[in-house]
Design a protein around this nucleic acid. Structure first.
Lengths: 208, 208
DNA sequence: TAGATTGTTAATCGATTAACAATC
DNA sequence: TAGATTGTTAATCGATTAACAATC
């Protein structure tokens, strides 16, 4: 194993590997070669072996990889068994859609609470998750530390809330606003930029 | 200008440039150098000039770039003035969140209709957009061709609907399901994989 | 054993950065 | 004019692909 620093290109492929292996495992496939997996995913076999070699030796010469074993190993690398805790800020349409539809648990997260400013929403429960007053954010986090906060609030309040979250020790921000968030180096940000995605598609339908 | 084929790395930066330039323009900034823009975006000046040179010469020696002009040019490249038409399939929580909150128009799209199977939703209007019966999809598209379809349906029906959309001439699919869609070469797919994004964040909070 | 397939090293390819002549 | 900054060519860096000895 070559444990140099792992490039973001590799890291971004890990969830895809994980997803494919989940499906293979669910379909009852027991073993797979890098060749077969690469064909299914549109990569090269070489790349898959190269990627995995950043983290360890998970295969067997002449055999390939045990699907369930590799799935578990990659899950371990991604941290799906760490019992991560999440909160959500902004229980508007998008926030409630995530609460109702997104399977946090499949990523190894428990969504423990949502926060909003709207008195009409505070006190409600969405998909089993209580909506609390954002004024209580710090008090809540002191009692129930969270690893990650999903940020589904209006753009103008995104940066201010980010600061409060970082201050309160939340390690990662899952950003759904179109704001480029400034964070201290101890806080990670992963953004889902809908507009960037749609504009990319807009470009693609003009060309290719 | 070197008009070779533009790499996806460059294409994925275009929406970011566009977004930053919108903000600068809105803030009344008239001109900017590649140096200043790169500092604001966390890139190198060289990279920005290199990226832009794929599409033309938009700057002026000794001056830099006119913000509003560059914004418009990049908008043109991305196709925001093409009057693209969109439909949406699946008016559940996520679909309605997009309808209510996402500014299709800021990306140059008009969201013209949504489709669902749920009789309780069909006939309703969400944020001014009618929800139609998905059984009428082909009939509708014959009368009102769409450039792009947002796919916010349950995983199991995603592939089947993708085929119907491609068949009906929809050029791009904005995929919010966690299904890896198979499409003919004439159809573009851009996926927003929430789970991949959260798993990436999960990895980041363990390391970095 | 023979065939298959890994993990890793070396070769290639592509993307980013640096440098600079051109010129506003 | 002098200073600034572009667009582009060349140099560097990093990521992907190919090749192959090791070995199940």
């Amino acid at each position: 194993m070559k444990r140099e620093k792992v490039s973001t290109a590799v890291i971004r492929r890990l969830p895809r590997y994980y997803r494919h292996l989940e499906e293979l495992s669910l379909a009852g496939t027991e073993r797979i070669s890098s060749q077969a997996l690469s064909a299914a995913m549109g990569l090269t076999a070489s790349q898959i072996r190269q990627d995995l070699s950043c983290f360890g030796e998970f295969g067997l010469q002449g055999y390939g990889y045990n699907v369930e074993n590799l799935r578990r190993e990659i899950g371990e690398i991604l941290g799906v068994n760490r019992g991560h805790r999440a909160i959500l800020l902004g229980a508007g349409n998008l926030g409630r859609a995530l609460m109702a539809n997104f399977h946090f648990d499949r990523c190894g997260f428990t969504l423990e609470a949502a926060f909003d400013v709207d008195k009409a929403l505070i006190g409600q429960t969405v998909a089993g998750v209580p909506v609390l007053d954002v004024a209580e954010l710090e008090t809540y986090l002191k009692k129930h530390p969270a690893d990650v906060a999903a940020l589904t609030v209006p753009g103008p309040v995104a940066q201010e809330l980010t600061q409060r979250l970082a201050q309160a020790g939340v390690g990662g921000i899952w950003n759904f606003t179109n704001v480029e968030l400034a964070v201290p180096p101890t806080t990670a940000v992963e953004s889902v930029h809908f507009a960037d995605s749609l504009l990319t598609l807009s470009y693609m339908i003009l060309k290719g």
